[in-house]
Design a protein around this nucleic acid. Structure first.
Lengths: 122, 122
DNA sequence: CAGTATCCCGCGTGATACTG
DNA sequence: CAGTATCACGCGGGATACTG
């Protein structure tokens, strides 16, 4: 039996940065691609309003999870990519995913079914 | 460089079960003790209303994170303890805690300071 | 194309009083 | 002691139109 210990202050902070309706999906895509433009991201994420997507990206930038790069010109080009801080979360996110798949497979399936098409990348 | 992969459906489910203002603290205490009575928990968690604490405990029971045991008699005695499913999250929670302490120490410190007294058990 | 401005609504959280 | 009933409020999320 593994005895794991933690305090809750850091846990609070970590969960706060991860909390947001679209953040898991955003992270998923950031982990998949080197960089991605806003509209590209917006197109592949169904049913989110532009305002909210911008909002969540803004929070994630504030929290240092991602890096926003604005290449000058017109029309504007803005690229988002995962940061080091964000990448450091990768294994933990994978473990959360694994935990859910193990202990709550039916709920995971529900989320899966509730979406038109979950990008299946192999 | 560790390449970690995850989909977001399970991540969504996992984060949903962890989302709640007092859940990190509740988990912390459940991991510390074998079992704990409601009022005991209520006393050591400052500034949470009884209703909300009950609410969050209720959700966590629904999600199978903890086990609620009601021992008959009067006045009633209700004990809460971590479940297997909940315990399986231990190492992940510890990693989230560690991540926050590494990458956002000042925010963690802020949370720490904003509380009268964070139970420091060693 | 990327971002802002408004207006809106439901839900998570909270204070307080009451009950078995 | 543990739990419920009410009432209230702010905030996250959403629809839509507009701007540089």
């Amino acid at each position: 039996m593994t005895q794991t210990q933690f305090r809750y202050c850091g846990l609070n902070v970590a969960l706060k940065t991860l909390t947001g309706k679209w953040k898991p999906m955003i992270l998923f895509h950031l982990f998949r691609t080197e960089e991605i433009r806003f509209n590209e991201l917006w197109r592949i994420i169904p049913k989110v309003s532009k305002k909210v997507l911008l909002q969540q990206l803004g929070q994630m930038e504030e929290d240092g999870l991602l890096i926003r790069e604005e290449r000058k010109g017109f029309p504007p080009e803005v690229y988002y990519r995962i940061s080091e801080k964000g990448r450091a979360l990768g294994s933990v996110l994978a473990q959360l995913e694994a935990w859910a798949n193990t202990y709550a497979p039916q709920q995971v399936q529900q989320v899966f079914d509730s979406e038109k098409h979950v990008p299946s990348f192999d």
